[in-house]
Amino acid sequence: MLRTNIQAIPLNTTAYRRFTLDEAVDWVKHLCESKGCSPAVANSLAHATVAAQARGNQAVGFRHLADYLPGFSSGRINPCVEPRISRAGAIIFKSDAQGGIAQLGVDRCFDSLCHAAHVNGMATLSQCNSFTSGELGDYTLRFAQAGLIALAVANGPALVAVPGARGKTYSTNPISFAAPSADGVPLLFDQACSATAFVNIAHAASTGSGIPEGWAVDQYGNGTRDALAALSGALLPFGGHRGANLMLMVEVLAAGLTGANWSLDAPAFNQGAQSPGCGLLILLLAPTYFSEGFEQRLANQMARLTQMGVHRPGWERQHATVNAQNDGIRVSVGLLEQLSRL
């Protein structure tokens, strides 16, 4: 039996359960294996889920399991499949996830990608036919912690209506970037090219919360602050045409280059029995091949920018991880019960 420490916290009358990180990983692994997942799939998804939760990225932490668990049951995600890994030359790795989770393909290639990048100056992973990517920043951060600059892009089913288009055209098409720094805290950002991530809309709808203006439109194309109306409508790109351009770039790299489904052709990730067949591309650069002292230069530059009041992306989330390593994480009892019922 998995043991946890239960702690009721008087925050909006919501009760929370506190886990150490190891306990949380074990809890998620047990839950996944109860849905028929192989030990490898359960392990990859559990570590990615808990890492996101520890960073405070709850949208792709425990809450995201509410998408994975029904996906395993319905057939949208193959719970046991191994990705098919191949290479095209010394620096290009290819993964066909075969309808499984995206995280396992990255895990299977991680050490080889790091070695190839450090030996050759760069390496890349092209993955197709997976469920959605999860927390894209988890991949880039791990590579940055291994001393590499990492850029990752991913696509998924069409959820976003761009200016002038008739209907949904792209997914939220996230992009993440991370770089190692001599101060021990990698520079990191992970963001959707839409005004927000779909999981934030879904969470607002489930809790009866409103959403900010500019996030979405309803089914008639009118701007809305009603999350339920947004679920029937579409998300919006950030920055209008500029955001739409970035979405197209991500689509070309994550779907066109990898051979994954275009967003327009991808089955839904939250209904039906077909895999969305998403794509993921990760580009890695070894800084020492380009200039000596990169990590120290970056640390000095980030210190200067911080003194000028510039926000340092990823700083808070990585400090949250340190706190979680010491104090554990807390998850609402209501969410845990919901996931157990799933």
Rank of each mutant, 00 (worst) to 15 (best):
S95E: 05
D96L: 04
A97N: 14
Q98D: 04
G99A: 13
G99C: 08
A102V: 09
A102I: 09
L104K: 08
G105S: 15
V106C: 10
D107T: 10
D107Q: 14
C109F: 02
C109D: 06
F110H: 11
F110D: 03
S112H: 04
A117S: 12
N120F: 14
N120W: 12
M122T: 12
M122A: 14
A123D: 10
T124S: 14
T124C: 14
S126R: 07
Q127S: 13
C128S: 14
S130E: 07
T132V: 14
G134H: 12
L136H: 03
L136E: 04
G137I: 05
D138R: 08
D138V: 03
Y139S: 02
T140F: 02
T140A: 02
L141F: 00
R142M: 01
R142L: 04
F143G: 07
F143Y: 14
A144Q: 03
Q145C: 12
L148K: 09
A150E: 09
A152F: 09
N155K: 07
N155A: 10
N155H: 12
A158R: 13
L159A: 08
L159N: 06
L159S: 04
A161S: 13
V162S: 10
G164C: 07
G167D: 08
G167H: 11
K168L: 10
T169I: 15
S171V: 06
T172Y: 01
T172A: 08
P174N: 07
I175K: 12
F177P: 01
F177Y: 10
A179R: 01
P180V: 10
S181V: 06
A182N: 05
D183T: 06
D183V: 10
G184D: 08
V185G: 00
P186E: 02
L187H: 02
L188M: 01
F189I: 00
D190M: 09
Q191E: 00
S194G: 10
A195T: 05
T196D: 06
F198N: 05
V199N: 05
A204N: 08
A205S: 14
T207W: 00
G210C: 13
I211M: 07
E213L: 08
E213M: 02
G214H: 11
W215F: 15
A216R: 09
A216W: 09
Q219K: 14
Q219P: 01
Y220Q: 15
G221A: 04
G221V: 06
N222E: 08
R225I: 13
D226I: 07
D226E: 08
L228G: 15
A229S: 11
A230K: 02
L231F: 05
S232E: 15
